[in-house]
Design a protein around this nucleic acid. Sequence first.
RNA 1: GGGGACGUAGUUCAGUUGGUUAGAACGCUGCCCUGUCACGGCAGAGGCCGCGGGUUCGAGUCCCGUCGUCCCCGCCA
Length: 433
Amino acid sequence: MQRTLIQDLAQNVTQTVRIAGWAHNIRQLSKVNFLLLRDASGVAQVVVDDKAAMQMLAKLHLESVLQVTGKVVAQKNAPGGLEIHSPEITVLSEVKEVVPFPINKGELNVAIDTFLDNAAYGLRHPDRRAIFKLSAAIMRGFRTHLDSRGFTEVATPKVVASATESGANVFALNYFDRKAYLAQSPQFYKQMMVSVFERVYEVAPVFRAEPHATSRHLNEYVSLDVEFGFIQDHTTVMALLSSLIRAVLQHLKDSTPTELEVLKVNMPLAPETFPAVSFKEAQAIIKDRYKEDCSHEPDLSPQHERWIGEWAREVHQSDYIFVTGYPMSKRPFYTHPDPNDRAYANGFDLLFRGMELVTGGQRLHLYDDYVTALTERGLPLEPFQGYLDAFRFGMPPHGGFAIGLERFVTQLLGLQNIREATLFPRDINRLTP
RNA sequence: GGGGACGUAGUUCAGUUGGUUAGAACGCUGCCCUGUCACGGCAGAGGCCGCGGGUUCGAGUCCCGUCGUCCCCGCCA
Protein backbone atom coordinates (compact mmCIF):
# COMPACT_ATOMS: atom_id res chain seq x y z
CA MET A 1 0.00 0.00 0.00
CA GLN A 2 1.24 3.46 -0.88
CA ARG A 3 1.97 5.96 1.86
CA THR A 4 -0.45 8.87 2.33
CA LEU A 5 0.81 12.19 3.66
CA ILE A 6 -0.98 13.39 6.75
CA GLN A 7 -1.99 16.62 5.04
CA ASP A 8 -3.95 14.55 2.49
CA LEU A 9 -6.02 12.52 4.97
CA ALA A 10 -9.08 14.71 4.41
CA GLN A 11 -9.30 13.38 0.86
CA ASN A 12 -9.33 9.80 2.14
CA VAL A 13 -12.18 9.75 4.67
CA THR A 14 -13.65 6.22 5.11
CA GLN A 15 -10.66 4.79 3.21
CA THR A 16 -7.96 2.57 4.65
CA VAL A 17 -4.61 4.33 4.33
CA ARG A 18 -1.01 3.91 5.34
CA ILE A 19 0.69 6.83 7.06
CA ALA A 20 4.15 6.97 8.55
CA GLY A 21 6.08 9.36 10.75
CA TRP A 22 7.35 10.10 14.21
CA ALA A 23 5.64 9.39 17.54
CA HIS A 24 4.96 13.01 18.44
CA ASN A 25 2.92 12.33 21.57
CA ILE A 26 1.15 9.40 23.19
CA ARG A 27 -1.77 10.14 25.50
CA GLN A 28 -2.56 7.07 27.54
CA LEU A 29 -5.98 6.62 29.11
CA SER A 30 -6.97 3.33 30.65
CA LYS A 31 -8.99 1.90 27.78
CA VAL A 32 -7.84 4.00 24.86
CA ASN A 33 -4.59 5.61 23.75
CA PHE A 34 -4.20 8.57 21.44
CA LEU A 35 -1.07 8.37 19.35
CA LEU A 36 -0.15 11.61 17.65
CA LEU A 37 1.88 10.79 14.58
CA ARG A 38 3.86 13.56 12.91
CA ASP A 39 5.20 13.60 9.38
CA ALA A 40 6.69 16.47 7.41
CA SER A 41 3.22 17.60 6.40
CA GLY A 42 1.38 17.56 9.73
CA VAL A 43 0.19 15.62 12.76
CA ALA A 44 -2.53 12.96 12.79
CA GLN A 45 -4.35 11.36 15.70
CA VAL A 46 -4.38 7.57 15.79
CA VAL A 47 -6.89 5.93 18.15
CA VAL A 48 -5.45 2.79 19.73
CA ASP A 49 -7.83 0.62 21.74
CA ASP A 50 -6.36 -2.82 21.14
CA LYS A 51 -4.76 -4.14 24.34
CA ALA A 52 -1.60 -5.56 22.75
CA ALA A 53 -1.06 -2.40 20.73
CA MET A 54 -1.45 -0.24 23.85
CA GLN A 55 1.13 -2.36 25.68
CA MET A 56 3.49 -1.89 22.77
CA LEU A 57 2.92 1.89 22.81
CA ALA A 58 3.50 2.03 26.57
CA LYS A 59 7.07 0.87 26.05
CA LEU A 60 7.75 3.11 23.09
CA HIS A 61 9.88 6.25 23.36
CA LEU A 62 8.74 9.44 21.67
CA GLU A 63 10.16 10.12 18.19
CA SER A 64 10.22 6.44 17.27
CA VAL A 65 9.36 6.13 13.59
CA LEU A 66 6.12 4.23 12.97
CA GLN A 67 4.05 3.06 10.08
CA VAL A 68 0.31 2.99 10.71
CA THR A 69 -2.31 1.37 8.50
CA GLY A 70 -5.88 2.16 9.41
CA LYS A 71 -9.17 3.69 8.48
CA VAL A 72 -9.62 7.46 8.15
CA VAL A 73 -12.66 8.52 10.15
CA ALA A 74 -14.29 11.93 10.34
CA GLN A 75 -14.89 12.52 14.04
CA LYS A 76 -15.96 15.89 15.36
CA ASN A 77 -14.16 15.57 18.72
CA ALA A 78 -10.84 14.65 17.09
CA PRO A 79 -8.19 17.33 16.54
CA GLY A 80 -8.72 18.60 13.02
CA GLY A 81 -11.91 16.51 12.82
CA LEU A 82 -10.08 13.44 11.52
CA GLU A 83 -8.46 10.40 13.06
CA ILE A 84 -7.25 6.91 12.24
CA HIS A 85 -9.17 3.92 13.61
CA SER A 86 -8.30 0.20 13.92
CA PRO A 87 -4.61 0.88 13.35
CA GLU A 88 -2.02 -1.71 12.55
CA ILE A 89 1.27 -0.29 13.84
CA THR A 90 4.76 -1.23 12.69
CA VAL A 91 7.90 0.20 14.26
CA LEU A 92 10.30 1.28 11.53
CA SER A 93 12.92 2.83 13.80
CA GLU A 94 12.84 2.44 17.55
CA VAL A 95 14.16 5.23 19.76
CA LYS A 96 15.93 3.81 22.80
CA GLU A 97 16.38 6.89 24.94
CA VAL A 98 14.56 9.93 26.20
CA VAL A 99 14.45 12.96 23.92
CA PRO A 100 16.64 15.95 24.98
CA PHE A 101 13.71 18.33 25.49
CA PRO A 102 9.99 18.31 24.70
CA ILE A 103 8.95 19.35 21.18
CA ASN A 104 5.32 18.29 21.50
CA LYS A 105 4.04 21.02 23.81
CA GLY A 106 3.19 23.79 21.39
CA GLU A 107 5.64 26.56 22.14
CA LEU A 108 9.24 25.39 22.29
CA ASN A 109 10.93 26.45 25.53
CA VAL A 110 14.66 25.85 25.29
CA ALA A 111 17.78 28.03 25.35
CA ILE A 112 19.30 28.61 21.94
CA ASP A 113 22.56 26.92 22.85
CA THR A 114 20.80 23.74 23.99
CA PHE A 115 18.61 23.86 20.91
CA LEU A 116 21.56 24.16 18.53
CA ASP A 117 23.45 21.37 20.29
CA ASN A 118 20.44 19.20 19.41
CA ALA A 119 19.54 20.81 16.09
CA ALA A 120 18.84 17.58 14.22
CA TYR A 121 16.16 16.85 16.80
CA GLY A 122 14.90 20.32 17.69
CA LEU A 123 14.34 21.36 14.07
CA ARG A 124 11.55 18.78 13.95
CA HIS A 125 9.37 21.09 15.99
CA PRO A 126 6.64 22.22 13.58
CA ASP A 127 7.31 25.93 14.25
CA ARG A 128 11.03 25.52 13.64
CA ARG A 129 10.38 23.58 10.49
CA ALA A 130 8.04 26.36 9.33
CA ILE A 131 10.87 28.91 9.61
CA PHE A 132 12.88 27.00 7.05
CA LYS A 133 9.91 26.40 4.79
CA LEU A 134 9.68 30.20 4.60
CA SER A 135 13.39 30.45 4.03
CA ALA A 136 13.05 28.03 1.11
CA ALA A 137 10.12 30.03 -0.26
CA ILE A 138 12.17 33.24 -0.15
CA MET A 139 14.89 31.60 -2.24
CA ARG A 140 12.28 30.22 -4.62
CA GLY A 141 10.53 33.57 -4.96
CA PHE A 142 13.88 35.26 -5.56
CA ARG A 143 14.75 32.83 -8.35
CA THR A 144 11.30 32.84 -9.92
CA HIS A 145 11.12 36.61 -10.15
CA LEU A 146 14.63 37.04 -11.54
CA ASP A 147 14.16 34.19 -14.03
CA SER A 148 11.09 36.01 -15.32
CA ARG A 149 13.15 39.17 -15.76
CA GLY A 150 15.79 37.58 -17.98
CA PHE A 151 18.41 36.80 -15.34
CA THR A 152 20.67 33.74 -15.46
CA GLU A 153 21.57 31.86 -12.30
CA VAL A 154 25.29 31.27 -11.91
CA ALA A 155 27.50 29.27 -9.55
CA THR A 156 30.81 30.93 -8.81
CA PRO A 157 33.78 29.50 -6.89
CA LYS A 158 33.80 29.57 -3.10
CA VAL A 159 37.48 28.73 -2.98
CA VAL A 160 39.38 31.74 -4.24
CA ALA A 161 43.00 32.69 -4.67
CA SER A 162 43.21 36.16 -3.31
CA ALA A 163 41.73 38.04 -0.47
CA THR A 164 39.10 40.26 -1.60
CA GLU A 165 37.28 43.44 -2.10
CA SER A 166 36.75 44.99 1.29
CA GLY A 167 38.38 44.77 4.65
CA ALA A 168 36.39 41.77 5.85
CA ASN A 169 38.54 39.00 7.22
CA VAL A 170 38.64 35.79 5.23
CA PHE A 171 39.20 32.17 6.18
CA ALA A 172 42.47 30.85 4.84
CA LEU A 173 42.84 27.26 3.76
CA ASN A 174 45.44 24.96 2.31
CA TYR A 175 44.86 24.32 -1.40
CA PHE A 176 47.41 21.71 -2.55
CA ASP A 177 50.13 23.54 -0.65
CA ARG A 178 49.04 26.90 -1.94
CA LYS A 179 47.18 29.45 0.06
CA ALA A 180 43.51 29.91 -0.76
CA TYR A 181 40.53 31.53 0.89
CA LEU A 182 36.83 30.97 1.35
CA ALA A 183 34.98 33.56 -0.70
CA GLN A 184 33.61 36.42 1.37
CA SER A 185 31.26 37.26 -1.52
CA PRO A 186 30.78 36.42 -5.20
CA GLN A 187 31.29 40.10 -6.04
CA PHE A 188 34.10 39.83 -8.59
CA TYR A 189 32.68 36.80 -10.33
CA LYS A 190 29.15 38.11 -10.64
CA GLN A 191 30.50 41.33 -12.17
CA MET A 192 32.57 39.34 -14.65
CA MET A 193 29.43 37.40 -15.56
CA VAL A 194 27.63 40.62 -16.46
CA SER A 195 29.86 40.76 -19.51
CA VAL A 196 28.63 37.29 -20.46
CA PHE A 197 24.94 37.15 -19.52
CA GLU A 198 24.17 40.83 -18.82
CA ARG A 199 21.93 39.82 -15.90
CA VAL A 200 22.93 37.24 -13.30
CA TYR A 201 22.10 36.08 -9.82
CA GLU A 202 23.43 33.57 -7.35
CA VAL A 203 22.14 31.90 -4.20
CA ALA A 204 25.13 30.65 -2.25
CA PRO A 205 27.00 30.74 1.04
CA VAL A 206 29.58 33.39 1.83
CA PHE A 207 32.17 33.27 4.57
CA ARG A 208 33.31 36.02 6.93
CA ALA A 209 36.11 35.48 9.42
CA GLU A 210 35.05 38.41 11.60
CA PRO A 211 34.97 37.53 15.30
CA HIS A 212 31.60 39.15 15.81
CA ALA A 213 29.41 38.09 18.69
CA THR A 214 25.96 39.54 18.09
CA SER A 215 22.48 38.24 17.46
CA ARG A 216 22.57 39.36 13.81
CA HIS A 217 25.90 38.06 12.48
CA LEU A 218 27.00 34.68 11.18
CA ASN A 219 30.37 33.57 9.90
CA GLU A 220 28.69 31.65 7.11
CA TYR A 221 25.44 32.88 5.64
CA VAL A 222 23.43 32.66 2.44
CA SER A 223 23.84 35.63 0.14
CA LEU A 224 21.21 36.35 -2.50
CA ASP A 225 23.35 38.13 -5.05
CA VAL A 226 22.23 40.05 -8.13
CA GLU A 227 24.25 41.92 -10.73
CA PHE A 228 23.13 43.37 -14.07
CA GLY A 229 24.28 45.63 -16.86
CA PHE A 230 23.09 48.63 -18.85
CA ILE A 231 21.81 50.58 -15.88
CA GLN A 232 21.44 54.33 -15.61
CA ASP A 233 22.86 54.50 -12.10
CA HIS A 234 22.16 53.03 -8.65
CA THR A 235 18.50 54.05 -8.83
CA THR A 236 17.96 51.47 -11.61
CA VAL A 237 19.26 48.87 -9.16
CA MET A 238 17.04 50.15 -6.35
CA ALA A 239 13.96 49.93 -8.56
CA LEU A 240 14.71 46.32 -9.43
CA LEU A 241 15.35 45.49 -5.78
CA SER A 242 12.04 47.00 -4.66
CA SER A 243 10.04 45.03 -7.17
CA LEU A 244 12.01 41.89 -6.31
CA ILE A 245 11.25 42.22 -2.58
CA ARG A 246 7.59 42.81 -3.32
CA ALA A 247 7.51 39.76 -5.59
CA VAL A 248 9.16 37.62 -2.90
CA LEU A 249 6.61 38.74 -0.30
CA GLN A 250 3.78 37.97 -2.71
CA HIS A 251 5.30 34.56 -3.37
CA LEU A 252 5.29 33.88 0.39
CA LYS A 253 1.62 34.80 0.64
CA ASP A 254 0.78 32.56 -2.31
CA SER A 255 2.92 29.54 -1.50
CA THR A 256 3.29 29.40 2.30
CA PRO A 257 0.06 30.67 3.88
CA THR A 258 0.14 27.90 6.50
CA GLU A 259 3.64 28.74 7.68
CA LEU A 260 2.88 32.47 7.77
CA GLU A 261 -0.09 31.70 10.00
CA VAL A 262 1.69 29.19 12.24
CA LEU A 263 4.47 31.70 12.89
CA LYS A 264 2.03 34.61 13.25
CA VAL A 265 3.94 36.66 10.71
CA ASN A 266 3.13 40.34 10.39
CA MET A 267 3.60 40.89 6.68
CA PRO A 268 5.85 43.90 6.07
CA LEU A 269 4.63 47.22 4.79
CA ALA A 270 6.17 47.35 1.34
CA PRO A 271 4.88 50.26 -0.75
CA GLU A 272 5.17 50.26 -4.55
CA THR A 273 8.20 52.54 -4.29
CA PHE A 274 10.37 52.06 -1.22
CA PRO A 275 11.20 55.38 0.44
CA ALA A 276 14.80 56.58 0.22
CA VAL A 277 16.83 59.08 2.19
CA SER A 278 20.41 60.12 1.67
CA PHE A 279 23.00 59.38 4.30
CA LYS A 280 23.11 63.06 5.22
CA GLU A 281 19.32 63.27 5.43
CA ALA A 282 19.31 60.24 7.69
CA GLN A 283 21.77 61.94 10.01
CA ALA A 284 19.60 65.05 10.05
CA ILE A 285 16.51 63.00 10.93
CA ILE A 286 18.39 61.38 13.80
CA LYS A 287 19.53 64.76 15.09
CA ASP A 288 16.08 66.25 14.71
CA ARG A 289 13.94 63.49 16.01
CA TYR A 290 16.20 61.49 18.32
CA LYS A 291 18.43 64.31 19.55
CA GLU A 292 21.72 62.64 18.72
CA ASP A 293 24.26 64.44 16.57
CA CYS A 294 26.09 61.88 14.44
CA SER A 295 26.77 64.24 11.55
CA HIS A 296 30.54 63.76 11.79
CA GLU A 297 30.44 59.96 11.71
CA PRO A 298 31.12 58.15 8.41
CA ASP A 299 28.45 55.49 8.96
CA LEU A 300 25.19 54.74 10.76
CA SER A 301 25.32 52.63 13.92
CA PRO A 302 22.82 49.84 14.57
CA GLN A 303 20.87 52.17 16.88
CA HIS A 304 20.77 54.82 14.16
CA GLU A 305 19.42 52.25 11.73
CA ARG A 306 16.72 51.19 14.18
CA TRP A 307 15.70 54.83 14.48
CA ILE A 308 15.57 55.33 10.73
CA GLY A 309 13.53 52.16 10.43
CA GLU A 310 11.08 53.45 13.01
CA TRP A 311 10.91 56.81 11.26
CA ALA A 312 10.23 55.17 7.88
CA ARG A 313 7.39 53.11 9.29
CA GLU A 314 5.73 56.11 10.89
CA VAL A 315 6.31 58.70 8.19
CA HIS A 316 6.27 56.56 5.05
CA GLN A 317 4.29 53.51 6.23
CA SER A 318 7.13 51.32 5.01
CA ASP A 319 9.13 48.58 6.71
CA TYR A 320 11.77 49.07 4.02
CA ILE A 321 13.86 52.18 3.54
CA PHE A 322 16.84 52.94 1.35
CA VAL A 323 19.74 54.96 2.65
CA THR A 324 21.79 56.26 -0.26
CA GLY A 325 25.01 58.17 -0.73
CA TYR A 326 27.30 56.80 1.98
CA PRO A 327 30.78 58.28 2.07
CA MET A 328 33.14 56.62 -0.43
CA SER A 329 35.65 56.07 2.37
CA LYS A 330 33.37 53.37 3.81
CA ARG A 331 32.73 51.63 0.49
CA PRO A 332 34.84 49.10 -1.44
CA PHE A 333 37.07 50.12 -4.33
CA TYR A 334 34.71 49.00 -7.10
CA THR A 335 32.02 51.42 -5.91
CA HIS A 336 30.93 54.04 -8.41
CA PRO A 337 31.10 57.55 -6.94
CA ASP A 338 28.34 60.10 -7.27
CA PRO A 339 29.39 62.09 -10.37
CA ASN A 340 28.19 65.29 -8.69
CA ASP A 341 30.08 64.72 -5.44
CA ARG A 342 32.81 62.13 -5.67
CA ALA A 343 33.14 61.88 -1.88
CA TYR A 344 29.84 60.00 -1.80
CA ALA A 345 28.81 56.72 -3.41
CA ASN A 346 26.19 55.84 -6.00
CA GLY A 347 25.13 53.11 -3.65
CA PHE A 348 22.63 52.20 -1.01
CA ASP A 349 21.77 50.09 1.96
CA LEU A 350 18.25 48.77 2.30
CA LEU A 351 17.07 48.65 5.90
CA PHE A 352 14.31 46.18 6.77
CA ARG A 353 12.61 47.03 10.05
CA GLY A 354 15.71 48.91 11.09
CA MET A 355 18.35 46.36 10.14
CA GLU A 356 20.71 46.29 7.17
CA LEU A 357 19.26 43.72 4.80
CA VAL A 358 20.88 44.64 1.51
CA THR A 359 23.90 46.56 0.31
CA GLY A 360 24.22 47.51 -3.32
CA GLY A 361 24.92 50.14 -5.87
CA GLN A 362 26.49 51.07 -9.14
CA ARG A 363 29.98 49.71 -9.83
CA LEU A 364 32.84 51.19 -11.76
CA HIS A 365 32.81 49.83 -15.30
CA LEU A 366 35.83 51.45 -16.99
CA TYR A 367 39.19 49.71 -16.78
CA ASP A 368 41.08 52.93 -16.17
CA ASP A 369 38.82 53.80 -13.25
CA TYR A 370 39.71 50.46 -11.63
CA VAL A 371 43.41 51.13 -12.05
CA THR A 372 42.95 54.54 -10.43
CA ALA A 373 40.77 53.21 -7.60
CA LEU A 374 43.16 50.41 -6.72
CA THR A 375 46.17 52.68 -6.92
CA GLU A 376 44.57 55.30 -4.72
CA ARG A 377 43.94 52.65 -2.08
CA GLY A 378 47.52 51.42 -2.33
CA LEU A 379 46.47 48.02 -3.70
CA PRO A 380 48.53 46.12 -6.30
CA LEU A 381 46.91 45.38 -9.67
CA GLU A 382 48.44 41.96 -10.21
CA PRO A 383 46.21 39.85 -7.92
CA PHE A 384 43.13 41.38 -9.54
CA GLN A 385 44.19 40.78 -13.13
CA GLY A 386 41.69 38.01 -13.90
CA TYR A 387 38.94 40.27 -12.64
CA LEU A 388 40.22 43.39 -14.38
CA ASP A 389 40.36 41.61 -17.74
CA ALA A 390 36.57 41.73 -17.83
CA PHE A 391 36.82 45.51 -17.83
CA ARG A 392 39.72 45.69 -20.29
CA PHE A 393 37.62 43.86 -22.83
CA GLY A 394 34.42 45.86 -22.49
CA MET A 395 31.99 46.13 -19.57
CA PRO A 396 28.72 48.08 -19.62
CA PRO A 397 27.58 50.33 -16.79
CA HIS A 398 26.28 47.89 -14.19
CA GLY A 399 25.36 47.39 -10.59
CA GLY A 400 23.84 44.96 -8.17
CA PHE A 401 23.27 44.03 -4.58
CA ALA A 402 23.39 41.24 -2.02
CA ILE A 403 20.54 40.27 0.29
CA GLY A 404 21.28 38.43 3.53
CA LEU A 405 18.82 35.53 3.52
CA GLU A 406 18.92 34.82 7.25
CA ARG A 407 18.46 38.50 8.05
CA PHE A 408 15.43 38.59 5.78
CA VAL A 409 13.92 35.69 7.73
CA THR A 410 14.94 37.10 11.12
CA GLN A 411 13.30 40.45 10.46
CA LEU A 412 10.27 39.00 8.73
CA LEU A 413 9.51 36.76 11.71
CA GLY A 414 10.76 39.09 14.43
CA LEU A 415 13.21 36.46 15.69
CA GLN A 416 15.50 37.32 18.59
CA ASN A 417 18.60 35.77 17.07
CA ILE A 418 19.72 35.16 13.49
CA ARG A 419 20.81 31.66 14.50
CA GLU A 420 17.13 30.78 14.78
CA ALA A 421 16.92 31.40 11.03
CA THR A 422 19.91 29.15 10.31
CA LEU A 423 19.76 25.35 10.21
CA PHE A 424 23.29 24.79 11.43
CA PRO A 425 24.79 28.18 12.26
CA ARG A 426 28.50 28.81 12.11
CA ASP A 427 29.57 31.42 14.61
CA ILE A 428 32.71 32.28 16.48
CA ASN A 429 32.47 29.29 18.77
CA ARG A 430 30.12 26.88 17.02
CA LEU A 431 31.36 24.50 14.34
CA THR A 432 29.10 21.53 15.14
CA PRO A 433 26.62 20.10 14.48
C1' G B 1 39.11 43.31 19.97
C1' G B 2 36.06 46.52 24.07
C1' G B 3 31.88 46.25 27.56
C1' G B 4 27.68 43.90 30.29
C1' A B 5 24.91 39.73 32.19
C1' C B 6 24.23 34.70 33.35
C1' G B 7 26.02 29.25 34.73
C1' U B 8 21.15 25.35 40.21
C1' A B 9 17.56 18.18 38.08
C1' G B 10 17.24 15.71 31.08
C1' U B 11 14.79 20.90 29.90
C1' U B 12 13.05 25.94 31.45
C1' C B 13 13.57 28.42 35.85
C1' A B 14 12.79 29.93 41.56
C1' G B 15 16.02 30.00 45.68
C1' U B 16 14.87 36.04 51.00
C1' U B 17 19.88 40.14 54.84
C1' G B 18 24.96 33.83 54.14
C1' G B 19 21.85 29.38 58.38
C1' U B 20 20.10 22.90 59.24
C1' U B 21 17.32 17.90 54.64
C1' A B 22 18.21 22.86 47.62
C1' G B 23 12.38 23.70 45.26
C1' A B 24 8.62 24.27 40.94
C1' A B 25 6.94 23.20 36.04
C1' C B 26 7.69 20.12 31.80
C1' G B 27 10.11 15.47 30.79
C1' C B 28 11.17 10.37 32.99
C1' U B 29 9.40 5.59 36.06
C1' G B 30 5.11 3.04 38.41
C1' C B 31 -0.18 2.88 39.45
C1' C B 32 -5.31 4.90 38.35
C1' C B 33 -8.67 7.12 34.62
C1' U B 34 -13.08 5.18 27.06
C1' G B 35 -12.42 10.74 23.94
C1' U B 36 -7.75 12.92 25.16
C1' C B 37 -6.35 17.36 22.24
C1' A B 38 -0.49 21.50 26.67
C1' C B 39 -5.30 15.09 28.95
C1' G B 40 -6.03 14.57 34.23
C1' G B 41 -5.04 12.21 39.33
C1' C B 42 -1.69 9.67 42.96
C1' A B 43 3.21 8.04 44.11
C1' G B 44 8.45 7.99 42.92
C1' A B 45 13.40 8.53 40.84
C1' G B 46 16.54 12.30 39.38
C1' G B 47 21.46 17.70 41.88
C1' C B 48 29.83 17.81 42.78
C1' C B 49 24.35 24.42 42.75
C1' G B 50 30.14 24.80 35.84
C1' C B 51 35.29 24.15 37.86
C1' G B 52 39.38 25.83 41.34
C1' G B 53 40.72 28.80 45.36
C1' G B 54 39.42 32.35 49.33
C1' U B 55 36.38 34.92 53.38
C1' U B 56 33.27 32.80 57.41
C1' C B 57 31.43 28.91 63.03
C1' G B 58 28.63 28.13 58.38
C1' A B 59 28.59 29.56 51.06
C1' G B 60 23.85 27.82 45.79
C1' U B 61 24.13 32.90 48.07
C1' C B 62 30.00 37.12 49.36
C1' C B 63 35.29 37.77 46.97
C1' C B 64 39.23 36.21 43.30
C1' G B 65 40.53 33.19 39.25
C1' U B 66 39.10 29.96 35.33
C1' C B 67 35.97 27.66 31.70
C1' G B 68 31.29 28.04 29.21
C1' U B 69 26.95 30.61 27.36
C1' C B 70 23.99 34.90 26.05
C1' C B 71 23.69 40.16 24.88
C1' C B 72 25.61 45.18 23.35
C1' C B 73 29.52 47.89 20.61
C1' G B 74 33.15 47.53 16.63
C1' C B 75 32.76 44.99 11.55
C1' C B 76 29.02 43.76 8.19
C1' A B 77 24.45 41.18 5.10
